[in-house]
Computed example of a mutant assay.
Amino acid sequence: MTGLRAQNKADRTRRILESASRLFRESGFDSVRIEDIAMDAQMSPGTVYNYFSTKGDVLLAIVAMEVEEVLVAGETLVADPQGGFDGAMTKLIGGYYDHSLKYLSKAMWRTAMAQSIAHPETAFSRHYTELDQRLTDQISALISKLQSRGDLRADLEANVLGVIIFNDINMMFVEFVKNENASLKTLRRDLKAHLQQFSMLLHPSPDTCATERESP
Rank of each mutant, 00 (worst) to 15 (best):
E180A: 15
V67Q: 11
N159F: 05
E157C: 04
A154S: 14
A141R: 12
T122A: 11
D98P: 01
I165C: 07
D132W: 06
I165H: 08
A114S: 10
A88T: 09
K91L: 13
A158C: 11
R188T: 15
V177A: 02
S125R: 06
Q115I: 02
R126T: 08
L184P: 07
A79Y: 01
I117R: 15
E75V: 12
D98G: 04
I139Y: 00
L195E: 03
E180N: 15
S144M: 09
L187W: 06
L131M: 13
N170I: 00
L161F: 04
Y128T: 04
I143S: 03
I139W: 00
E180M: 12
L156H: 00
M200G: 02
M108E: 04
F85Q: 00
D137L: 09
G95Q: 06
L77H: 06
A154H: 01
S105Y: 07
G87Q: 08
Q147W: 03
S105A: 11
L92A: 06
L104G: 00
Q115N: 05
S100R: 03
K102R: 15
D155G: 11
E121H: 14
Q133W: 11
I139G: 00
V72Y: 13
R189A: 15
K91Q: 14
K145Q: 04
V78R: 06
S144A: 15
D151C: 07
S144C: 08
I93W: 01
M171R: 13
G87I: 09
K178L: 12
V67T: 15
H119P: 03
M200T: 05
E68S: 14
Q115Y: 02
D98W: 00
E130H: 12
P81C: 02
E130A: 13
Q147M: 14
D151Y: 01
G74Q: 08
L135T: 10
P81Y: 00
N170F: 08
L195S: 05
T90K: 09
T186F: 11
V174P: 02
V160M: 02
I169S: 03
N179V: 01
F173E: 02
D98E: 12
A158I: 05
A88F: 04
M172Q: 13
D137F: 06
D151I: 02
S144V: 01
G150D: 10
G94K: 05
L142H: 06
S183G: 10
R189P: 10
Q133D: 10
A158V: 05
V163S: 00
L135E: 13
E175P: 02
F166S: 05
T129G: 04
P81M: 00
E175N: 13
A79F: 04
Q133A: 14
A107G: 10
N159V: 11
D168K: 11
F124Y: 15
Q82P: 02
